[in-house]
Design a protein around this nucleic acid. Structure first.
Length: 258
DNA sequence: ATGCCGTGGAAACCACGA
């Protein structure tokens, strides 16, 4: 089973790219972030026509997350991360698919830091840690995936010395990510490629993609029940070079059948 | 070092992203 995550940066503006990528790579499950569309503007018909069903949590202008599947039933478990009833932002959706609990997330950016946006990021992060702990206690196969807006280590940044104060790389953010993984989650891409330079995002300007000035911020975290089922993982880097493309590239893993 | 690009929505610019 192939599972992918893709921050599309506007699902309607990006629809031709998304459909082409889905048709060329045929992932079984896809988590999308940054739909930037209200609930009723999700392009369900176009996605259905190429063989995918979907659940989504939209929001006007910003955020928005979805889970797509091909020939697999989606049983939605929750939308919205627990721990703050006041949080209106659409950044989290969770479902059971083919015996796996899949959480698709879009962790807040947090810039500028310090400030209220950074505080929101850190509080969202602690809510995620708390919920992730709950999910681990199920002792079932669970995947946390999406745009974490965190480069976990210096290897994940093209120029780490320039990013130390940034909300994606500040020490407390990296510490929060480590605290999360230390619960027992496996960073799937790093497990298979411990030393490689792997990026999932390149800025639109300064020819970042051409210079490979990238960041690794889209991740797959696997519960212990999935560790031995990880067959392969990668980044569909060429998609970042397409016309009218997102600033993120799709990331995927392949799992052995249970 | 930096929103230099790009999106969406409202308004003919602004908020936001990483």
């Amino acid at each position: 089973m192939k599972i992918a995550t893709y921050n599309v940066n506007g699902i309607n503006g990006r629809l031709p790219v998304l459909l082409r990528w889905l048709q060329e790579t045929s992932p079984d499950v896809v988590c999308l972030q940054e739909l930037k569309a209200p609930q009723e503007k999700f392009p369900e018909q176009a996605i259905r026509e190429i063989g995918y069903q979907a659940i989504w949590h939209g929001q006007k202008s910003w955020n928005g997350v979805a889970i797509l599947t091909r020939n697999l039933e989606i049983e939605e478990v929750r939308r919205g991360l627990p721990g703050d009833d006041e949080d209106e932002q659409s950044r989290y959706i969770e479902a059971n698919v083919n015996g796996i609990r899949i959480a698709g997330l879009y962790l807040p950016n947090g810039n500028p830091a310090p400030g209220p946006k950074f505080d929101y990021k850190m509080s969202w992060f602690s809510r995620l840690q708390a919920h992730a702990k709950e999910l681990l206690s199920l002792n079932e196969p669970v995947i946390l995936t999406g745009d974490f807006n965190v480069m976990p280590t210096e290897k994940d940044v093209y120029k780490p010395e320039r990013w130390g104060e940034d909300a994606l790389f500040r020490p407390e953010v990296r510490a929060a990510f480590k605290e999360l993984t230390d619960q027992g989650w496996t960073d799937a891409l790093r497990k298979l490629y411990p030393e490689e330079t792997i990026y999932t995002f390149w800025d639109y300007f300064r020819n970042a993609y051409q210079r490979n000035a990238g960041l690794r911020i889209d991740h797959f975290l696997l519960s212990p029940q999935l560790e031995d089922r990880l067959l392969a993982a990668g980044v569909d880097k060429e998609v970042r070079g397409w016309e009218k493309t997102s600033d993120h590239a799709p990331v995927w893993i392949e799992l052995k059948d249970a």
